[in-house]
Design a protein around this nucleic acid. Structure first.
Lengths: 187, 187
DNA sequence: GGCTTAAGTTTACGCCGCTTAATAAACAGA
DNA sequence: TCTGTTTATTAAGCGGCGTAAACTTAAGCC
């Protein structure tokens, strides 16, 4: 399996994603500003996303060119149909991931939201749907849910025998000491 | 929960990741080339990753500056200790995700590897560890595994009542018709 | 009218990561 | 030695995504 890791058919999909992380958040910002304020201007979007007005201006011009964003009769920003569709799908993915990480895996809020936010625009539709299934499976049955919680709290996930463990390949995955890659790198 | 989606504390972490997707794959390429050929040169890395030699040259120069890559006595490329640590952690994350998507969720090979590859350098250590726990929980018990497979095949994941469903917030997540965001965007 | 201020745009810049093309260095054969 | 190939590096260009600063436009106000 590990050979697949450098298969260029996979690794370059990352940069070929049509929808960038940043674009998704501009769209979501416009959407939520309209909910909160009733309107959205370049300045509001910039402030919401903590970017300069200049950056927001050019990025939003680009989103208009893509026809994901348009203007309402009062010249305020508005999501076009395609933009709305994107927003609902990204938010959908975010909700699934955040619930999965937070409620099922019991991950700290910071990592749960952080990971979900990074992956929301990358997860395939198939993965999202199956993840919902898994959540329903675990949460749908009280006893199972309890058993799962207990299991996760027991802590010791090391496999007894790497040769037999259905999860590990050559070394026990659970035994590996891991630290966060996000913080990796020099000063 | 959805409010968190535009929290700039989360959304800008994405670009602040010290380790880029691309850098991770350069490191893994060097590692696997040394396994396969016994050595790794700029040209080999370029070919393995399907990028130009120019791109490989500059990127590898950068990786040397970061002290993730060095040269062996014969001037072939070699991972430095930090580089090796990164590779083992990224591969670790990849294995966890690929197994989770493929073996547990039963996702098609393409999406399983594709999603795992995109997320491997983004997943927090905490998430990885808990994911292993979940896999052990499901796979560790034969009956549970069978029940899970049956459940996933039954197909109907819609919640009976959105108000009660522990997963959905305002609309049934499973009911949402989703398509792939990766392919989103105009021609 | 003339001044100030807010909003939006443009321009110059930097970083990342890629491409292509030019150049340099190293090596091997006629 | 001269020449052609391979390998590596460098340079120029482009797209994405930011910053900072300058500039335009449109109100609002006395």
């Amino acid at each position: 399996m590990t050979k697949e890791i450098n298969n260029s058919a996979y690794w370059r999909e990352f940069e070929q994603n049509k929808l960038t992380h940043s674009a998704a958040h501009y769209l979501m910002a416009i959407d939520s500003l309209r909910d909160e304020l009733g309107y959205a201007r370049v300045t509001d979007v910039a402030e919401k996303l903590s970017v300069s007005r200049g950056a927001a201006s050019t990025k939003i011009a680009d989103l208009k060119k893509r026809r994901w964003v348009k203007e309402d009769p009062n010249r305020f920003l508005l999501l076009a149909d395609d933009g709305e569709a994107i927003v609902s799908r990204v938010e959908h993915n975010f909700r699934i991931l955040a619930r999965f990480f937070g409620d099922i895996l019991g991950i700290s809020k910071d990592n749960a939201f952080g990971d979900a936010c990074k992956m929301e625009h990358l997860m395939s539709a198939e993965t999202g749907q199956r993840l919902i299934g898994l959540m329903h499976f675990i949460e749908g049955d009280d006893d199972r849910m309890k058993a799962f919680r207990a299991f996760m709290q027991s802590g010791d996930l090391h496999c007894a025998d790497v040769e037999i463990c259905p999860i590990c390949e050559d070394e026990c995955l659970a035994a590996a000491t891991i630290t966060d890659l996000a913080k990796e790198g020099q000063s």
